[in-house]
């Protein structure tokens, strides 16, 4: 079972992100479960959503305390929330930031270097969608970083979630991010 935790702020769409990820897994014929952190938080408050992906039926109903991947929609959370709590030693971290992990002060983290990546998801969203909604970008990056979900499944999930131009723009943001993250991983391993 692969477990994902998405950290963001109320209004950024962590729940939608988790649900699109779960839908993409479903479209690949796998079992998945997305759920919010069950709060009554308003716009701007730190929020969390979870996603589990598995080849077997998922019976577990506890929150994701030991994630395999973290998606961080807002880097300002780094100083507020215990983001890395329970993250597996081989876990993946994807941060929405134009700064490098070093610049974000994350160089000392005990995770494999090629599992930790920051990229400007919001900027990519602005370019393709015209609005600062980093969800599709981050999920595209997730596909490249973890290989857990195929980019085509993600794009299909986006297509089911949204329609018309919104769907098209979000797919473009996911695709662009998939490429950018893929390239920077490639660069890191070179």
């Amino acid at each position: 079972m692969f477990q994902v935790r998405i950290h963001g702020r109320g209004g950024q769409g962590v729940v939608t992100g988790a649900e699109m990820l779960a839908l993409a897994a479903f479209l690949e014929g796998r079992y998945s479960q997305a759920f919010p952190s069950f709060g009554s938080e308003r716009m701007g408050a730190p929020v969390v959503a979870f996603c589990r992906i598995s080849d077997q039926e998922i019976r577990l109903r506890e929150p994701v305390t030991m994630p395999d991947a973290l998606l961080i929609q807002d880097p300002t959370l780094l100083h507020q929330v215990d983001l890395f709590s329970g993250l597996s030693k081989s876990g993946f971290i994807l941060i929405n930031s134009g700064k490098s992990p070093d610049e974000l002060g994350l160089s000392g983290l005990p995770y494999p270097e090629d599992h930790l990546l920051a990229f400007p998801a919001t900027e990519i969203a602005l370019k393709h969608i015209g609005r600062p909604l980093p969800n599709s970008s981050l999920l595209g990056g997730f596909c490249a970083l973890t290989g857990e979900i195929g980019i085509d499944s993600l794009k299909e999930a986006i297509g089911r979630r949204f329609s018309g131009k919104t769907a098209k723009d979000n797919m473009a943001a996911a695709e662009a991010s998939f490429t950018i993250v893929g390239e920077s991983m490639h660069a890191a391993t070179d």
Partner: peptide, 12 residues
Amino acid sequence: VDGFILTHAYEQ
């Protein structure tokens, strides 16, 4: 039906 745990879970 368990609130949130089921009502808000998105699954197949």
